[in-house]
């Protein structure tokens, strides 16, 4: 299969930046709002999502010629649910404190549009490796944005980074409660999407300007 490697790389990079699920597709916003007030919780949530998205895409791709088209969405949801419940069980056993804080949202990964979106749009009609990387890239791009949101919310809201207090917290910083609450995520996310899109538009415009006029 020539071109598979290039195709796989393209799948990864496209999802990671050019078609970033949050910037470009505005998918999966619900969990982006809910879990991003602490970086450690966000990191675990992201790892769970990466695992579920990559493996779902790979599994759907591996089974793509066996899945009856009329029940393909049911099959996809079953596969997604299985991988997400694995995440839930592992968190409960290994990170009980985090599980208490974000447990309900882990289950909600099942309904995260990104996973099924990638399964439907890519994995169902592509080979296993590109599908795995496509899912991995999409989840990684999503995670990057979530971590960025958390990196803004946690220091402003709690005065800590990964739970470590910043010096300013003791000295003069007064924590912004709004950053801990879900509305804080709306503000931060909107600003990030704005910045990312503005940059993308400037790059596009610069590219067009370089091309010779027809």
């Amino acid at each position: 299969m020539p071109g598979t490697a290039a195709q796989a790389k393209k799948a990864l990079v496209t999802e990671l930046w050019d078609d970033n699920p949050i910037f470009r597709q505005v998918l999966g916003i619900c969990s982006a709002l809910a879990v991003t007030n602490l970086m450690f919780n966000t990191l675990l949530m992201c790892l769970g999502l990466i695992w579920a998205t990559a493996l779902t895409s790979a599994t759907v791709s591996a089974l793509r010629s066996y899945i009856p088209p009329r029940v393909r969405m049911i099959a996809q949801v079953l596969i997604i649910a299985a991988y997400v419940i694995v995440v839930d069980i592992v968190f409960r056993a290994q990170f009980p404190d985090v599980h208490r804080a974000i447990g309900p949202y882990v289950g909600l990964i099942i309904t995260n549009c990104i996973i099924m979106g990638r399964a439907e749009a890519f994995a169902i009609k592509n080979p296993v490796l590109p599908s795995l990387l496509d899912g991995f890239g999409a989840a990684l791009g999503y995670s990057g944005v979530l971590m960025l949101v958390a990196l803004i919310r946690e220091p402003l809201g709690f005065g800590t980074v990964f739970g470590l207090p910043l010096p300013a917290r003791e000295a003069w910083w007064h924590s912004w409660t709004i950053m801990i609450m879900p509305p804080g995520a709306f503000f931060v996310l909107a600003l990030i999407v704005w910045a990312a899109r503005a940059r993308a538009m400037r790059l596009d415009a610069a590219k067009k300007a370089k091309e010779p006029p027809k």
């Binding site: 009856p68 099959a75 299985a82 694995v86």
Partner: peptide, 17 residues
């Protein structure tokens, strides 16, 4: 086929979990 496939998929994944 649809029935068998769906049932088999459910059994495999549920058993794993």
């Amino acid at each position: 086929y649809v029935l068998v496939f769906t049932a088999a998929l459910a059994v495999v994944f549920t058993a794993g979990i």
